[in-house]
Design a protein around this nucleic acid. Structure first.
Lengths: 223, 223, 223, 223
DNA sequence: GATGAATGAGGCTTCATTCAT
DNA sequence: GATGAATGAAGCCTCATTCAT
């Protein structure tokens, strides 16, 4: 289920193609300081290249962030599509959710950047209209549509809304997970931090919510 | 249901207490440009005060953002608590969700800042540990707990996780709404923008998701 | 020998005339932070008056420093003139030096400001041409002239130069004394600080230097 | 006797190493306006570099001043040590004083900064404990000690105090010289300015004071 | 392609000073 | 006279980006 990722280990590997090494470095640095506080020169240092080299591969600092999103979203979409291929809607949705969480769990640094920085950047990402995210939502919406068409899901909620809701669930729990495991900048006081929760169990909670909601009912008892 | 808000109209009213006027102005400016791109001097101009005046009421630019969150979250919490008081869990949850969306709908500018900027700031808000957000989650979790205790909700999902999930639903649809209605900085191309959806109907979709999930089942038919 | 000074105790005494209280406060604050780093509002706080009140008594921040110099120099000159009146040149010079050091010893805070801040301010004090300092040098030069005229001092060094030299000796040892006793801003490490020396003994060293220099000679033995 | 100084001519020479050029520029600007009134951007302009370039070589504005002191003090110490090497104490002291004044005379701009700004900066230089000044005093104190040990100087004054006194003499006359020749900021009124005096003659006056003091005595006649 | 020294625009913040009360 | 909230000019410094080597 794990998505293989050499990229994560590129940051210090002088053999790795420069572009990938820079993106890996950016991920680490952006996760550490946040996009706005991060310095391009720190990314360069982490990547083991000169400051100027970054501009041979990326238009500017923003492009670094966008490219980073793009790369991870494509990876994510690929992983998700592979996970659902050939499955029935209901099972596909479960696989989608579990795989999503698993991929995040496998890439904590990437998740931190994706989760934390995505929104303020969304603003400008909306302008470029983020095709990878659109693809993500389309895939998810497709599953819902298929399930509705198959009569497995009721059609009270439009598929594209349902897709966004599911994304909201995935995203929020991912955020909670990221914040729970982040050592924080200044060491943080472990006592005040929310207890870690297993992001894989979180997938099952999401599945539960998505499938049957919170209300106890007779049919659930029978299931 | 609407929460009355003089605050939103303070920005240009010289009678309004300075602090509130500055916060209102900051909301507008941060919504317009994003926190990082926004200039303190623009906030001052919008508030109709001198640059230095801002520093009589706020420690620095960050404090402006934090204070702004705090104020809105307190308002939100107050509105939500008032909405659920005396209600049974199930009805309380519905009221919570509808009121939440209604309050956001009444304060689009605030919602924009809250929704978009909250995360990157969360990073440092986590350090101050955002008591208002904790309060929000506690209230919501309390409803879920009560519903579980009353046997109305099953207990497959821990209440604090359920609370976060519901927040994820609310937050994501709010984000979608905000992005759909945002005129964007550079005019934007209306064609590429997702069609507006009614945030109040969104509340009902969320209620549907939260209560019964997506799966069609017999008991739902009877309800 | 001690110069009586109510002024030193004015800073917190609400009965003391405002102007004096402000000057006392300025002395304390300027000594603590240095003139440039000191804030007018801190002076006001120390003096127990409002910021604006300072501008009722002083033209601006510079005027505060200049007035403070002026007051202390007048005091000093008064003390010195009283100490030498009626004395023969040789004895007058001794009294001048001892009294000078004694007055400084009695007003450590004032000495700190006078000694440390005088120069960078000299620059602008030169423009107003600092009559009190001119008076100081004239008095001192007068003693030397008298001594030369009386044949007690040789005339190898012009009196006004000799006066400046003596001032240099007084000033430098005062500076050494001030720095040795200053607890420094950040507590300082006592170990690294030069050992305190008695500023009154310093007066005798200066007298020795001024009268006979450093070279051992026969006539000194006889003295 | 003159200490050769290319540095003084660096300010506009694009070939000169940047760091030296910046220091030269800082010297000029600080001498012109005083440290606090001087603007970093003026230093940059004078040095013919961009504002930001200064921060490639210096931590901040303070570091500029400290580095400037350090460089000049090291130069001065080097010149002084070269001047006294191999000399008997008495002659060494004369060489020390004459060389000191000669070096100052050769670097009027540096002297202006050193003399005027040293004190208010001393405050923070004391914290870093100014090793170059300590070195200066040690060299001077060493001469006095040697002279005392040789029986040429009496030992009424501790060598380290004597050293400070001599510095006081040198410093005060240097200050008088600087102020006399300063064109002042706003043109100044030549009439009120003390008549120029030759700083080299001043050295001899200092020697006279240091060796035999002011008092006329028999042995002096014989010398 | 790679470098990294140099650039310079621009913003946060401070604080002396004012003036309506 | 006294106040102190408000002002707003001004400067230090950062850091994304460039370009000569």
């Amino acid at each position: 289920m794990t998505v293989h990722s050499v990229a994560d280990k590129n940051a210090r590997d002088p053999e790795a193609p420069k572009r990938a090494r820079i993106l890996d470095a950016a991920e680490v640095i952006f996760a550490r300081h946040g996009f706005f506080a991060a310095k391009v020169s720190d990314v360069a240092k982490e990547a083991g290249v000169a400051d100027g080299t970054i501009y041979l591969y990326f238009k500017n600092k923003d492009d670094l962030l966008i490219s980073l999103f793009e790369r991870r979203m494509v990876q994510l979409n690929d992983g998700l599509k592979a996970a659902i291929v050939g499955k029935q809607p209901r099972e596909a949705l479960r696989a989608f959710i579990r795989t999503h969480m698993q991929i995040l769990a496998d890439h904590p640094t990437a998740t931190e950047v994706l989760t934390i920085e995505s929104r303020s950047s969304n603003k400008f990402m909306k302008e470029y209209d983020n095709p990878a995210f659109v693809d993500f939502l389309r895939t998810l919406g497709g599953i819902v549509t298929a399930a509705q068409d198959a009569g497995e899901f009721d059609d009270a909620i439009p598929p594209h809304i349902a897709a966004r809701m599911i994304f909201g669930l995935l995203d929020e729990l991912a955020l909670a997970w990221v914040l729970a495991r982040t050592p924080s900048i200044n060491g943080g006081s472990p006592g005040t931090r929310p207890k870690k929760f297993d992001i894989v169990r979180a997938a099952d909670w999401i599945i539960h919510m998505v499938e049957t909601g919170l209300v106890r009912n007779a049919s659930k008892e029978l299931a």
